[in-house]
Each structure stands twice: as C-alpha cells, then as structure tokens.
Amino acid sequence: MAHALYALGRIALAAIFLWSGYGKLVSPGGLSMMLAGKGLPYPLYLTYAAGVAEVGLGALVVVGWQARAAALGLVAFTIAATYLGHDFWTQTGAEARGNQIHAAKNLAIVGGLLMLVAGGAGRFSLARK
C-alpha cells in the first residue's frame, strides 16, 4: 500500500507542472508578456522553453525514470518561477498577499520535490530495482 501511495504522490506532485506547462505551450501570450515586462530577452522563446521543461520533467517524474534529476530540475524551475512571477516583496496590498500565497505554495512544492530527490522514484516506477 505504501508503494502505491508513493506513486500516487509522485503523480500528484507532477500534475501541476504538466498542466501549467501544457498551458504555456498552447497559450504562451500571458507569460510571454509578463516576461517582456520584466525586461527579459526573447520572452516567447523563454515561455516555450518553460513549457517544454515543465511537461518534459513532469512526465519523467510521473513515470519515475530519472525522477531524481527531473525533480531537481523542477526545483530550480520552481525557484526561478517564484522569484520572477511571485515577487510579493515588491508589491503591496491584495497583490502582495496573493503572490505571497503562491510563493508559499511553491515552497511546499519544492519541499515535495526535494523529498523525491532524496527518496527516489519508488517501487512503482520505470527505475525500480
């Protein structure tokens, strides 16, 4: 039972990246405009790269192949996304509170990913031994 729960947890953890990454690939406008507004170069290419990274690394976590490396990549991605997209420390009022909640959620996701890095993909994975 514990092995199945571990696999379900791995899938649930990756789901947000699969969903978000797919959204970036089919509708890149919003993130691209935000990145451009922050002065980053090639915002459309960065948006597509983010989408590919989220979908690709998320899929590796789901199937449990190279899950530790994929989870580490998602940790780096999540930290960068939090810094760029949820910079509550530069905001005030409701906007700051909303982004602080998103940043805290991302911190929790990073925690789950780090547990995956430490524990590996588990028994029900392509990497099982």
Rank of each mutant, 00 (worst) to 15 (best):
M1F: 14
A2N: 15
A2Q: 15
H3D: 15
A4Q: 14
A4H: 14
L5Q: 15
L5H: 13
A7R: 12
L8N: 10
L8H: 08
R10F: 12
R10T: 13
I11D: 06
I11Y: 07
I11S: 09
A12K: 04
A12M: 14
A14H: 11
A15L: 14
A15Q: 01
I16R: 02
L18M: 03
S20D: 02
Y22H: 08
Y22K: 03
K24H: 12
L25P: 01
V26M: 11
S27H: 13
S27R: 13
S27T: 12
P28L: 00
G29W: 01
G30D: 05
S32F: 04
M33L: 09
M33G: 04
M33E: 14
M34R: 09
M34Y: 12
L35E: 08
L35Q: 09
A36L: 09
A36P: 10
A36F: 04
G37A: 08
G39A: 13
L40S: 05
L40K: 05
P41W: 09
P43R: 06
L46V: 02
L46K: 04
T47V: 03
T47F: 00
Y48G: 04
A49Y: 04
A50W: 00
A50S: 12
V52Q: 02
V52W: 01
A53F: 01
A53N: 01
A53I: 01
V55K: 00
V55W: 01
L57N: 03
L57S: 02
G58W: 06
A59D: 04
L60P: 06
G64R: 08
W65K: 14
Q66L: 12
R68W: 10
A70V: 09
A70R: 11
A70H: 13
A71T: 06
L72R: 07
L72T: 11
L72V: 11
L72F: 15
L74W: 00
L74S: 00
V75W: 06
A76F: 15
F77P: 01
F77N: 02
F77C: 02
F77H: 05
T78H: 04
I79H: 04
A80E: 09
L84W: 13
L84G: 09
G85Q: 00
G85A: 07
H86L: 06
H86W: 06
D87G: 10
F88I: 12
Q91K: 15
Q91T: 10
Q91Y: 10
T92W: 03
E95M: 11
R97E: 15
R97D: 15
N99D: 15
I101C: 04
H102M: 14
H102S: 14
A103T: 10
A104V: 14
A104D: 12
A104H: 07
N106A: 09
N106L: 08
N106K: 05
N106D: 11
G111K: 06
G112M: 02
L113V: 03
L114C: 10
L114N: 07
L114Q: 06
M115Y: 08
L116A: 07
L116D: 07
V117E: 03
V117W: 07
V117R: 03
A118S: 11
G119K: 12
G119D: 07
G120P: 07
G120Q: 10
G120N: 08
G122I: 08
G122W: 08
R123P: 05
F124L: 15
R128T: 14
R128G: 13
R128E: 11
K129Y: 13
